[in-house]
């Protein structure tokens, strides 16, 4: 039984069919990559799944529950967390605080408990900080915890975004081009980090242009072009698929 299923997802912007009847499913613990040329609709598909834009039609289920068109915070509550293609962190907060926002869904203190703190509220906060520090250490950014975000280089910001999502203990992670803008060394570290995440049993959907990274770590690959799914299969199959090759070489002008 797949943990996550998308059926016939559609969304247009004006006359443009950004996502056009896409269906696929992901097995628990699997890492599935979504590739395709610029403007193929990959990010839009993520936004539809994560609830930040409304679908026109379709169906989404996660662990057997219908999560179609739920608002983003509800999707997050269900255990699906994401990163953004154009990094979206909280610039006026430290790295530690950024990561702690990721823990939001795992913590309980609301307005009343915050205003009138009890011992468990302090304990909860302390535990969250310890966990955040641990995640930061695992990802090699523990020296940056007290840094204001604005003072961080691009590569570290990508890692902080990943750490923030991990702090929420997701069951499924949506990564939108995590290697974009990273140098070779950083990309290697990233693939190492993704491997560690998979070891924890977290299911991953990965959008990525870096083909060596995709071929290296993904279990299966989906190819989008002009909003449509044109291929799905194992990395080796996708590499040989003539239609995919055509799309990537730009000879597909039927």
């Amino acid at each position: 039984m797949p943990i996550f299923e998308v059926e016939n997802m559609c969304r247009s912007f004006g006359g443009l069919k950004a996502v056009d009847g896409v269906s696929f499913s992901v097995e628990s613990g699997q890492i599935k990559a979504i590739i395709g040329p610029n403007g193929a609709g990959k990010t839009t598909l993520f936004n539809l799944i994560a609830g930040s834009i409304q679908p026109d039609s379709g169906a989404v289920t996660f662990k057997g529950a219908d999560i179609y068109a739920l608002p983003p915070h509800k999707i997050a509550e269900k255990g699906i967390l994401r990163t953004f293609q154009n990094i979206k962190l909280f610039p006026h907060m430290t790295v530690m605080e950024n990561i702690l926002v990721g823990s939001h869904r795992k913590m309980r203190a609301g307005f009343l408990q915050a205003a009138f703190p009890l011992p468990w509220t302090y304990r909860e906060e302390r535990d969250a900080r310890e966990k955040a520090a641990q995640i930061a250490e695992d990802l090699g950014i523990d020296t940056l915890l007290d840094t204001e975000l604005a003072n961080l280089d691009f590569g570290s910001q990508r890692v902080v975004e990943l750490a923030r999502a991990l702090a929420g203990e997701p069951e499924m992670l949506l990564l939108d081009e995590p290697a974009a803008g990273l140098n070779i060394h950083e990309t290697l570290q990233l693939s190492e980090a993704i491997r560690k995440i998979m070891e924890k049993g977290i299911t991953i959907l990965l959008i990525e242009h870096d083909m060596s990274l995709v071929m290296d770590i993904s279990d299966e690959i989906i190819v989008l072009s002009y909003g449509k799914k044109i291929a799905e299969g194992l990395p080796a199959e996708i590499q040989r698929n003539p239609e995919v090759i055509a799309v990537y070489l730009g000879t597909d002008n039927a």
């Binding site: 983003p72 915070h73 203190a109 915050a114 509220t121």
Partner: peptide, 24 residues
């Protein structure tokens, strides 16, 4: 100084990212 205050500041910085992390 709490989870709530952090969420509020997060909303102020990026509503989209805050809600993606589960902040209502």
């Amino acid at each position: 100084d709490s989870r709530v205050g952090r969420a509020l500041r997060a909303i102020h910085d990026s509503e989209e990212a805050a809600s993606a992390m589960g902040v209502d």
